[in-house]
Design a protein around this nucleic acid. Sequence first.
DNA 1: CTCCTATATATAACAAGTTATATATCAACT
DNA 2: AGTTGATATATAACTTGTTATATATAGGAG
Lengths: 188, 188
Amino acid sequence: MSLQHGILGLLSYKSMSGYDLNKVFNESINHFWSAQLSQIYRVLGNLEDKGYVSSQVEHQEGRPDKKIYSITDEGKKEFRNWMNDNPEQLLSPIRDEFMIRIFFSSLLPKEETIFQLERYNKQAQELLKHCHSEDQVIDKYAEELSLPNDKLYWRLTLKKGKMITEALVRWSEECIEELKQAQKEHQK
Amino acid sequence: MSLQHGILGLLSYKSMSGYDLNKVFNESINHFWSAQLSQIYRVLGNLEDKGYVSSQVEHQEGRPDKKIYSITDEGKKEFRNWMNDNPEQLLSPIRDEFMIRIFFSSLLPKEETIFQLERYNKQAQELLKHCHSEDQVIDKYAEELSLPNDKLYWRLTLKKGKMITEALVRWSEECIEELKQAQKEHQK
DNA sequence: CTCCTATATATAACAAGTTATATATCAACT
DNA sequence: AGTTGATATATAACTTGTTATATATAGGAG
């Protein structure tokens, strides 16, 4: 449901091809929704079947033709309805594979767990850096699409991405310290 | 893949029925993995087909018989292999429906968004409270299963749950303040 | 001159997750 | 007496998400 509505929302800003949508997802929606290209194409097909989007083919020299999707009035209505209808449970379910690994880490030597936590920490720091660079992406899009009112909300989602990622960086650091401490205690 | 291995891990602690596994998930694995009962049953079936678990039926008076699953040597091997084989990307993809709603909130009056953020905040605080009560659950399980070495790691996953949830509480509070501020500016 | 990357769309096969439903018993509440 | 909730297992139908693959062109790196 959500990916469908995320795509409808983006198409309400601007008509785009599946390929373009994928770029927008990878560039900016990344902190709160990830999608595979193949899934985007399928969802676009579903949305067209339902009449929420329409498509026109744009011929391109030297490259495959572009299929540009536009939101229909039906689609706009559906999107508005979805926006007005918040679910009971607002927190999304969590599924974090790495935590399963940590949970059962008594099976592994502490050095191995510390090593993986260090990798985790590095990746979280990378993501945090990426988040910080997104501020400019927001400015760019807001100007390109002349949507100054949306900037505020886009920044709120980015802020959430930053805060969560900072928490992950801190968490992994504290874990590493705790495990090193536990190692020392054991050596005594 | 992860749910399968999470279940194998839990069964390596103790043989259990699908119903019991569900309770453990809801009680304690909750901060990092959520699963539906129906999915647990299906995964147990898959694991049995692969020979990773075996089941014995335990007769019960007055209630349907219990089907108790135990991990096999094959299953233990598979679980160890999985534990030793960490993926390149350790950070899990994020899919947060509420953020899609926030992203497009310029469509709605600010009061409505503030209202939903307040609901979000309340739910996050509830979850945080629940996390704090989990400390005792960890103690209980560690004693019941006599697994003192695992407690350390269980606490690390719980700590992550707490830190993330605290970040969500703070994030939603800051969002509410920002929106109220923006409302005031507009009124001037 | 070949390989890689970017542009561009799409499908097949599979894996994972959700929702609804069926069956059955017992205890507690109304 | 009837409903609800907990105990207990399971399947069907559906939706969503992942991985692999096919096709086709252009430009740049090696």
